[in-house]
C-alpha cells in the first residue's frame, strides 16, 4: 500500500517531535495506544494560561507512518488554537488532509484521542491549581 505524499512528508520530516516537562502546570499530556498494532502516541500541549491559546505542541509516536504523520499534523494544527478550538479537531479532518486509506483511519482516531487526552489533562491541572491557590489564600 502506498503512502500519500503528505504522509511521507510528515513521516520523513516529522514536525514538533519532543516533549515538555509534564509536571509544568501549563502543559497537558495525552498518552494513547492501540493494542492490536502496539502503537503508542504521546502528545503534549503548552497553553498560555492568560489567553487559553496553545503556544506550542510536541509529540512522540511509536508506530506506523500514518500514526506518525497523524500526530505530526495534529501538533501543527494545535499551535495557535484555543483549547476549545483544539477540541473541535476531528479525526476525519486528519484523514482528509493526509488522504489516509480506510485501513489507516484508526491512526487518525488515535491522534484525535491524544488531543482530547492532552487537553483534558491540561484542564484538570488548571482546575487543581485554582483549587490550591484558593486553599492557600
Amino acid at each position: 500500500m502506498a503512502y500519500s505524499d503528505k504522509v511521507l512528508d510528515h513521516y520523513n520530516n516529522p514536525r514538533n517531535v519532543g516533549s515538555f516537562d509534564k509536571k509544568d502546570p501549563n502543559v497537558g499530556t495525552g498518552m494513547v495506544g492501540a493494542p492490536e498494532c502496539g502503537d503508542v502516541m504521546k502528545l503534549q500541549v503548552k497553553v498560555n494560561p492568560a489567553t487559553g491559546i496553545i503556544e506550542d505542541a510536541k509529540f512522540k509516536t511509536f508506530g506506523c507512518g500514518s500514526a506518525i504523520a497523524s500526530s505530526s499534523l495534529a501538533t501543527e494544527w494545535l499551535r495557535g488554537k484555543t483549547v476549545d478550538e483544539a477540541l473541535a479537531i476531528k479525526n476525519t479532518d486528519i484523514v482528509n488532509e493526509l488522504s489516509l486509506p480506510p485501513v489507516k483511519i484508526h491512526c487518525s482516531v488515535l491522534a484525535e484521542d491524544a488531543i482530547k487526552a492532552a487537553i483534558d489533562d491540561y484542564k484538570k491541572k488548571s482546575e487543581n491549581v485554582g483549587v490550591e491557590s484558593k486553599a492557600h489564600a
Partner: peptide, 9 residues
C-alpha cells in the same frame, strides 16, 4: 476491546 490498557501506556 481495541483500547489499550491505560495503566500500561
Amino acid at each position: 476491546s481495541k483500547d489499550a490498557p491505560p495503566e500500561l501506556l
